[in-house]
Amino acid sequence: MIADFRRRRAGMSGLAFLVLIAVVALAAPLFITSHDLSAVYAPGAPRQAPGSDFLLGTDGYGRSMVDVTIWGARISLTVGVLATLLAVGIGALVGVTAGHFGGWPATVLMRVTDWFVVLPVLVLASALAAVLRPGVGTVVVAIGVTAWPRTARVVRAQTLSVEARPYIERAKALGGGHLHVMRRHILPNVMPLMLAQATLTVSEAILAEATLAFLGLSDPTKVSWGTTLQLARQVGAVSANDWWILLPPGAAIVAVALAFTLVGRALEQVLNPRLQEQM
């Protein structure tokens, strides 16, 4: 399976890029100090064009765009991963429960899932974020509780196919309870698919984080790609044509979201032979 993944160039380059970003984001505190990111004692003049002092210019406060963009990766990735854990957790719970028990609980759960799929997610998430206290935690919750339905569907389908295998019957015959069957026999078989779904959800969550932050629903004092773009719009970077403030955070979002999507698609193809034929 790993060898199969290795052969997929798009997935591998996405993975390599993500590893690089993760290393840079983790190492950021080594070369960016809180002084560099201070809005009040910013190291440069506001909205300075790229030059020898600042490679990519400065933002609305006078902070280096290089530093801001690198630091932004920390919040954006953290929110993306945490929201995904929440979403995939809910999705797996709903999917395994619906797939294992069947009957009316499955009908109810899948109706709720379908209902969530149809609803305008951004409306729900932003309403939730507006109603709660604005902040990073709120954004994680708002994304997490709205991004799970697709995982639930995929996990349920896989659970149904695992349930039909003989060893499940054997486990039940030997007296394995519901919890035992779900934990020891179904979950390990659903895990790989959950991983693929999680990778795809991260890309969705990073986009949603940027969007919610841009709408002013996150903590504006935390530097993320979304808040940087929100600040850029507030200080009039758009009409003044300060492209260096707009370009780096947006390009970073596109690159990271695309990388997660490529990895997720490659994983899906490795795990699902039917998709494989299509490539």
């Binding site: 940027a210 773009l229 947006g250 999507t261």
Partner: peptide, 9 residues
């Protein structure tokens, strides 16, 4: 993979 609002800007 592109944020809508960023494309607009």
């Amino acid at each position: 993979s592109m944020p809508t609002f960023w494309l607009g800007l």
